[in-house]
Design a protein around this nucleic acid. Structure first.
Length: 468
RNA sequence: GGCCUCGUGGCGGAGUGGUGACGCAGCGGAUUGCAAAUCCGCGUACUCCGGUUCAAUUCCGGACGAGGCCUCCA
């Protein structure tokens, strides 16, 4: 079996991946908080861990990988958004409107980016009971305490707290930027359960009507669907501290385990045109805007291009998301699709082994793409089964095979184009080059590029392509 | 202030203790009525300063620079 090497944030080294159970490889990735449309930065973990999911499925078998990505639908930002957008509705109804709409959009965005659906996509609000059980366990084991109506995790009760992020509590204190809240035993103690006022969403609990803290949901949902210790936990770099650190503290202390997940993976951040993405700079762009509006470069970009633009850089490195990057990705993808054109795929066709091998080295997509270029070159020379191999590999990587090349109705030219092409061929055959060029230019105006070639019988033929 | 990443040619981006990956763009050639596509070929780099070494872009130290976290932001 192929060996997979993955960089583990916990050890800061690349390690050979050994699943706990090769018959059920388990991965958890922190999903979106559904209060607003996902921005391009949110797209990165979606794409990166989808690639890992695909690789795991290929390595261990499609039915031997469980990928859980949660939907966080309880959060104070959601409450705020609900009040802002639906001030006339009862709060619960307003919240439901916000989360349903946002979740739907997220799933549609993820799909447009070529991502497979995770095996399970649990919602926080469907797991409140599990969270409460976990909190009760933590209290019983003296890892949590009740103060001023909040249940707090006692970080001092866990000697190894800070292992993932490489910080110790004293360092944090030195920073002294943590607001000191009198009811906490230690400034780093974090909330497991907080009380809700009548105007806030809440659930009844042994500690009063309230709502869960930020971190507990992931501990609860990962345990429910993947067990107390599982293989891989992923998310953005920013989640290392405090989110993942706190997840580990909760899960390990509640279960008395040595690990929550064996491998912790984190994708890097991205900038937009060399600058940090922020609403104030005006370069904050959502996935949906990229797909459907001219938010970047004055035009829309298809999901396949966004996916490739994202994967062009190794997942742990920072990315400068720019128009020129998108253009390069588009051009590269077009090359591949052109080279793979006409291949007919069957259900079980495997991706190229050399491409897969590159990916097994901590998802080195860029090297995989070099291997892909090599195959594309062979496909253009019509060598062996290169064309077919390229197509199946592109499919494996989550790319469409013709998204840049065809019009909506496939390679069959619409009647007016077919007619124009026929007219032009007739003109060419009577050496009327001026007329031929007029037709070519007219079609070019419509974004259609013509390419002449000779068929096997030596007859002149014309192919066409949509230029976006 | 503490902690964590990173710094390769016009751009993207791997990798390595010792003959300058690869892609895009650019240039030349083949091909073409002209093109496009395709094929063949070409150029330019390892932030700076020390150290280790026969030899460093690659290891170590420092400087400078960029980004992130430490107030629920992927």
């Amino acid at each position: 079996m192929t060996t997979l090497a993955l960089y583990n944030t916990l050890t800061r080294t690349k390690e050979a991946f050994a699943p706990i159970d090769a018959n059920n490889v388990r991965m958890y990735v922190c999903g979106p908080t559904v209060y607003d449309f996902a921005h391009i930065g949110n797209a990165r973990p979606v794409i990166v861990f989808d690639l890992l999911f695909r690789l795991l499925r290929h390595t261990y078998g499609v039915d031997h990988v469980t990928y859980v990505r949660n939907i966080t639908d309880v959060d104070d930002k959601i409450n705020a958004r609900a009040l802002r957008d639906f001030p006339d509705l009862p709060l619960n109804e307003a919240i439901r409107r916000v989360t349903e709409k946002t979740e739907k959009q997220f799933l549609s965005d993820a799909s447009a980016l070529g991502s497979l659906e995770p095996t399970i996509q649990p919602r926080a609000t469907d797991n409140i009971e599990q969270m409460q059980t976990l909190i009760s366990d933590l209290i019983a084991k003296k890892h949590a305490y009740n103060a001023s109506g909040e249940v707090l995790f006692d970080v001092k009760s866990m000697p190894e707290y800070g292992q993932l992020s490489g910080r110790n509590l004293d360092d944090n204190l030195a920073g002294a930027r943590i607001a000191v809240e009198a009811h906490k035993k230690n400034p780093a103690d974090f909330v497991l359960w907080k009380q809700s006022s009548a105007s806030e969403p809440g659930w009844d609990s042994p500690w009063g009507r309230g709502r869960p803290g930020w971190h507990i949901e992931c501990s609860a949902m990962s345990e429910r669907y993947l067990g107390q210790t599982f293989d891989i936990h992923g998310g953005g770099l920013d989640l290392i501290f405090p989110h993942h650190e706190n997840e580990i503290a909760q899960s390990r202390c509640a279960h008395g385990t040595h690990a929550m997940a064996n491998v912790w993976m984190h994708n890097g951040f991205l900038q937009v045109e060399g600058q940090k993405m922020s609403k104030s700079l005006g370069n904050f762009v959502t996935i949906n805007e990229l797909l459907e509006t001219g938010a970047m470069g004055g035009r829309a970009w298809i999901g396949d291009v966004l996916r490739l633009a994202m994967l062009m850089t190794h997942y742990r490195e920072p990315i400068d998301f720019s128009v020129s990057r998108l253009e390069e990705a588009e051009s590269k993808l077009r090359d591949w699709q052109r080279a793979a054109r006409g291949a007919e795929l069957a259900e079980g066709d495997d991706p190229d082994a050399s491409v897969v091998k590159e990916l097994t080295d901590d998802l080195n997509f860029h090297r995989a793409s070099v291997a892909l270029d090599f195959i594309a070159k062979k496909a253009n020379r019509d060598e062996g089964n290169a064309k077919h191999c390229l197509a199946s590999t592109l499919r494996f990587l989550g790319f469409g095979l013709d998204s840049l090349l065809t019009s909506e109705d496939g390679w069959e030219a619409p009647p007016h184009i077919a007619a124009a092409i026929a007219d032009r061929l007739a003109a060419l055959n009577s050496k009327d080059f001026a007329k031929a060029d007029t037709i070519r230019n007219a079609l070019a105006e419509q974004g259609i590029a013509l390419m002449d070639y000779k068929d096997e019988a030596g007859e002149r033929q014309t192919k066409w392509e949509m230029k976006r």
